[in-house]
Design a protein around this nucleic acid. Structure first.
Lengths: 110, 110
DNA sequence: CTCTATATATAGGATTCTTATGTATAGGAG
DNA sequence: CTCCTATACATAAGAATCCTATATATAGAG
């Protein structure tokens, strides 16, 4: 489990990434993020929902109410075409950040 | 250059990493971090100094005033033995975070 | 003497995430 | 039928982190 304060900025990337596979509702997003990172990346639902509203307001997601097979009311989010376009440069930015930090933490005495 | 909001949590790692090579004063830390990450990681001096005070208060750094060859007054920071010990698990945490995010952004359809 | 680079410092605010709390329903155990 | 758990969404209040703006001061170049 990643310590507090270290995860900052990762939530948006995580949400956009899992939505890249297809539409999902919030509760399932959180479950998949935790599962696919083997529990090392986990953020609470109380963090997730405000983020979804923000991304929807920004036009990257669109949410639609639906009723599941089990009769449960829930809000299903999908990436908009704008959101899909943004995902590419965001991943590139993160990749740059990773490489930059690796240069700092590993490639000493250069 | 990494966009705003995406860098969060990286400053502490960056500072501890450059200090892992030896004692430095603030201005030089910022310069090296920018140089060693090829400009992609850069945080302002106004962010740096409060961080140094916090890390010193926490006991991971110790700062000492000195006068440089050019007669300039500056504060030189070095890792304490406690700070050196902390650097190991912090690097491991970051490595976990990187791997977790890679699983999310790359290893789809698993 | 002016301008730039060096060097430290703080106030104020924006952003991001967490803890705590609340609402509501489906389905199983008893 | 009732209690409990898992599912599902929601908001308030605050902590943590970083940035912009601003301030001070000095060395060296021209």
């Amino acid at each position: 489990m990643i310590g507090p304060g270290i995860k900052r900025g990762t939530a948006e990337l995580a949400v956009l990434s899992v939505l890249g596979d297809g539409p999902l509702h919030g509760y399932e997003m959180a479950r998949r993020i935790e599962e696919q990172t083997h529990g090392s990346l986990r953020f609470t639902l109380a963090s997730l929902y405000p983020l979804l509203y923000k991304l929807e307001k920004r036009g990257w997601l669109r949410g639609a109410w639906e009723t599941s097979d089990t009769g449960r009311r829930r809000r299903c989010y999908r990436l908009t075409s704008e959101g899909k376009k943004k995902l590419v440069p965001i991943r590139r930015e993160w990749d740059e950040l990773f490489r930059a930090l690796h240069r700092l933490t590993k490639e000493r005495h250069a």
